[in-house]
Structures are given as C-alpha cells and as structure tokens.
C-alpha cells in the first residue's frame, strides 16, 4: 500500500478527532481527543521518513497532556449555552471557511504532485553534510551546525516563554493581596 493512502486514512481520523475535541462538552474528553490528533501527527511523521520529528512530537503530546490535565482538571467548569448571536456567527464562519476551501482548491492544483518536492536547495546538505560536520544524523547537523543561529533564536524564545509563565504565575492578584492584608489586620 503506498504511503499516500495511509496518510489519507490518518488525516481523516485526525480531522474527526479535532472536530470532536472542539465540540465535546467534557474537558477531559477534549484533551484525550487532542491527544489522538497529536499521535496521528506523530504517526504521519514516521510514514514521511522523519523519525526525529516523530519522537519529539510523541513526547510533546505526553507533556502537553500532563500540563493540560494538571492545569484544567478539577476547576469547576460551567458550560454556557450558546446564545443566538453566537450560533449565527458560527454559521457565518463555517460558510466563509468553506468558501475559502473551495477557492483554494485551484491554488493547490498548481503545486507539484505529492512525492515530488518543490525544494531542491537541500541537496547540498545531503551531499556534503557528513563530510562537513562529521555527524551521521543530517537533521542534527543542520540544526546545530549549518543553521545554529536558528537554534539560538529558538532557545531565546523558549527561555522568554518559560520566564513569562513564571512571572505570570508569581504575580499576586490585587484583590487577594487586599484580602490577605485585611485578614492580617483582623488578626
């Protein structure tokens, strides 16, 4: 069976799972459905001959699951009934997105067929990567040697994001501070 058919099957499962994740009421079911989508992406990476990405995506999925469950489960979560205007807006959005999809079909027809890539610049890396850097894993040789600047920027972004998360969680909200001052005063 060619790779393309497998990918079509996985993608259909992923689309169904993502719609389910967005429409389900229970928050734990949504998080599990998102897990299905992520594992589908990981499996597709394996079919597309990218084992590095498959490993990272799989771990990302586990980690995101832990964060989401840890943060959102157990909060009392009220499901609001959608109002009339929301229903109208959702309908309009679906119509607009369908129109975008229909118009974009002709754009995708311009692309070369699946399996014959557009980009040919990377041929240099394939030919000389092992000789230039001495690494057998060519992806690793690109991220840490040819394009190490990208990784530097990526580390900076990660550092900033994590620092931002720390700072947000450390700030004490105003009302709580007042409350604690009040309670201290009464003591």
């Amino acid at each position: 069976m060619p790779v393309e058919y497998w990918l079509i099957f996985i993608l259909i499962v992923m689309i169904i799972a993502s719609i389910a994740a967005l429409e389900m009421d229970d928050i734990l079911s949504s998080i599990v459905a998102i897990g299905i989508v992520g594992l589908g992406v990981s499996l597709s990476f394996l079919f597309l001959q990218a084992p590095d990405l498959a490993i990272v995506q799989f771990l990302f999925e586990i980690f995101a699951l832990i964060i989401l469950v840890k943060a959102f489960l157990g909060k009392d979560y009220h499901k609001q009934a959608p109002s009339r205007i929301n229903k109208i807006l959702a309908g309009l959005t679906i119509i607009t997105l369908t129109a975008i999809f229909i118009f974009s079909v002709s754009v995708f027809e311009l692309l070369p067929p699946f399996g014959e890539p557009l980009m040919t610049t990377a041929q240099y890396y394939l030919d000389n990567g092992a000789k230039d850097t001495g690494a057998a894993n060519l992806v690793s040789s690109i991220i840490l040697d040819y394009r190490a600047y990208d990784t530097l920027g990526e580390i900076t972004v990660l550092f900033t994001a994590i620092l931002g998360a720390f700072t947000i969680l450390r700030i004490k909200s105003k009302s709580k501070k007042e409350n604690s001052e009040l309670s201290n005063a009464t003591k």
Binding site: D52, A135, N137
Partner: peptide, 14 residues
C-alpha cells in the same frame, strides 16, 4: 543525537 534519531530536544523532554 548526532548518530541516531533524537537529540537535545527529545532527550531533554524525556
């Protein structure tokens, strides 16, 4: 990381 699939990102998450 330079010989087999994986590397700093994947190993760091593990």
């Amino acid at each position: 990381g330079h010989l087999t699939p994986g590397g700093g990102f994947a190993g760091g998450v593990i």
